[in-house]
């Protein structure tokens, strides 16, 4: 089994790095005890969920079984977890309300998207990636990140953004979802498990930025100090 994993890693290096790099922010988060702060506890849950889903997909992909269904399920879950992280960070009550509504609506929308595209769950190999959910997720995430950055610019509470952990987290996610927003619609429309789409190196761009995102999150978490964070 290990040989299968190794051979899969050799074939899809970027994808595998993107899976295993989640360990770094996860370890940093536990080491720095970031879970004591509400938004970072959401981030920790997101990292754990992401790692579990990614490892499951890695396992099934290496034994040549379809992972599309896991990917489809992961989209609303990720949105709910990242959204709840921003829910704790926003100071404007109006934004918080919008965010809560968007989580509920997006979950319903992605369920509809999943059922509409894959009416038959039995044939896993014919399963398709959700058409719209991935793109909508990227657009919504970019919107919330920009809104949050706008809010911190207006409030002027953080003197040095480079020392502010959540700024790194936001920057990482912004870069990742920006890299995904153009590729997701093409991939999700055209690709199937039995008929992968060949778009060359572009296919790896989101994975590269997933790695960049994990590094940014790790740097942010490393800067975390509960005592000083509570004051900010």
């Amino acid at each position: 089994m290990i040989e299968i994993y190794i051979s899969f890693c050799q074939k899809h290096t970027f994808i595998c790095i993107a899976v295993f790099i989640t360990f770094i922010p996860l370890i940093v988060s536990l080491f720095k005890k970031t879970y004591r702060e509400a938004s970072f506890s959401s981030l920790l849950i997101y990292l754990i969920t992401k790692l579990v889903i990614d490892l499951t997909m890695f396992h099934f992909a290496s034994i040549k079984q379809s992972t599309v269904v896991y990917y489809n399920i992961s989209i609303p879950v990720y949105y709910a977890l990242i959204g709840s992280m921003f829910y704790h960070k926003f100071e404007t009550t109006r934004y918080k309300k919008w965010l809560i509504w968007s989580i509920g609506l997006f979950t319903l929308f992605s369920i509809w998207d999943m059922v509409y595209i894959n009416p038959e769950f039995s044939n896993l190999h014919e399963q398709q990636l959700v058409f719209y959910s991935g793109t909508v997720l990227s657009l919504l995430m970019i919107f919330w990140i920009l809104l949050y950055l706008y809010e911190i610019m207006l409030l002027l509470k953080i003197p040095n953004l480079l020392n502010f952990p959540f700024f790194w987290v936001c920057s990482g996610f912004l870069l990742y979802f920006s890299s995904l927003v153009c590729i997701a619609p093409v991939l999700h429309y055209a690709e199937k498990w039995n008929n992968p789409l060949d778009i060359g190196f572009v296919y790896y761009v989101p994975y590269i930025f997933e790695i960049v995102c994990a590094i940014f999150i790790s740097v942010g978490l490393w800067n975390f100090s509960f005592e000083s964070y509570a004051k900010q």
């Binding site: 970019i142 870069l175 920006s178 890299s179 927003v181 153009c182 590729i183 572009v202 761009v205 930025f209």
Partner: peptide, 16 residues
């Protein structure tokens, strides 16, 4: 796709 993705990433980078 490559150009669009790079443009988006650059934009995000400049926003940051």
């Amino acid at each position: 796709l490559l150009i669009a993705s790079l443009a988006m990433i650059l934009m995000s980078f400049f926003v940051i």
